[in-house]
């Protein structure tokens, strides 16, 4: 191992927070390496959660809105322009406790990367219902990606499970194709923003099923129906469906950091004093350390902060 092999900074994850950190680190001439993740049909992919959405209407600077994947491609191009280096793999193992940090990736030889500092921006992954048949019928009526699969449900009856902004947005998007979209929510009110609630609740194709949980997914080679449980009436019943879209929230991608980085009881990384974690030279930004705001712009903002924190730390500790 030669000194040349030790990078100044490795950024793990390439959502808005990781890419903003990449832009700042690259402009500061830190030659960042970004372990950007691997393709998937969930939000755990290069570009992160916004790769699965359509219009982003609240990112400042785009009064006419911008498509999520386009916004992320532009952020990546901006980082590339300043010399950031991207590795299209996942980090599968890390050792962050020592002075020199090690990160192993998911290629066939588990290549190891070394750095003086690490920025964690692994964001959050979508939760699944974890009930029988969900995994086997994924792609056969059950979906985690409305923008990919909505097309196959033209003139069909479908349901979206969830009550946050992403669930309502998916439901509204899916009305372009489906005849009827049920939103199934286990409480009696949504946590989504007012504007989304208004749009969903006033939509003629959308029907909301309150206080209700999905108990079973039924069908052999494709989805046929789901069994619902109304938790107020204590009543179970079946609903015939062609498609079921799952949007029940997110949990932080922090498995590989367990036992090294301090987290709260839900697995969010704890930061203090800006973006610092409990380990010297390790910083965290975006949804992986934020269970409150969870927005593209707050993720990007904290990515900028992490890059500045890392740069200062490198200046103080390496020179």
């Amino acid at each position: 191992m030669s000194e040349d092999d030790i990078n100044e900074v490795i950024i793990i994850g390439s959502g808005p927070s990781g890419l903003t950190a990449a832009i700042y680190c690259a402009r500061a001439n830190l030659k960042p390496i970004i372990i950007e993740g691997e393709p998937s049909s969930t939000s755990d992919q290069p570009g992160g959660q916004l790769m699965l959405t359509t219009e982003v209407e609240n990112f400042p600077g785009f009064p006419e809105g911008i498509l999520g994947p386009e916004l992320m491609t532009r952020m990546r191009d901006q980082a590339l322009k300043f010399g950031a280096k991207f590795i299209t793999n996942k980090a599968v193992k890390v050792d962050l406790k020592d002075k020199i940090k090690r990160v192993w990736i998911s290629d066939d030889t588990n290549t190891e990367y070394l750095a003086h500092s690490v920025i964690i921006s692994t964001g959050a992954k979508s939760l699944m219902l974890n009930i029988d048949n969900e995994a086997t019928l994924l792609g056969y009526g059950v979906s985690t990606c409305a923008t990919c699969d909505g097309f196959f449900f033209r003139n069909k009856t479908i349901a979206v499970v969830g009550g946050g902004d992403s669930a309502l947005e998916e439901a509204i998007f899916l009305t372009k194709f489906a005849d009827k979209v049920h939103i199934i929510h286990r409480r009696d009110s949504f946590r989504a923003s007012k504007i989304m609630q208004q749009r969903a609740m006033s939509h003629e194709k959308i029907d909301i099923i309150w206080n209700t949980e999905v108990k079973k997914i039924n069908g052999n080679s494709k989805l046929e129906s789901i069994t619902l449980f109304n938790n107020v009436l204590n009543k179970e019943y079946e609903l015939d469906l062609d498609g079921l879209f799952i949007a029940i929230g997110h949990s932080p991608n922090t498995e590989i950091f367990k036992d090294q980085i301090l987290m709260d009881e839900n697995g969010y990384i704890q930061t203090n004093n800006g973006t610092k974690t409990n380990l010297d030279g390790v910083f965290a930004c975006g949804d992986v350390q934020d269970h409150i705001y969870k927005q593209a712009i707050t993720a990007a903002g904290s990515g900028c902060a992490a890059a500045i924190d890392a740069e200062r730390w490198l200046n103080n500790n390496l020179n």
């Binding site: 393709p39 049909s41 992919q45 290069p46 790769m51 699965l52 994947p69 923008t147 990919c148 097309f151």
Partner: peptide, 13 residues
């Protein structure tokens, strides 16, 4: 399909 992001991601692979 052209509008499918995850399809674009797997294409170079």
């Amino acid at each position: 399909a052209t509008w499918c992001g995850p399809c674009k991601a797997i294409a170079p692979i």
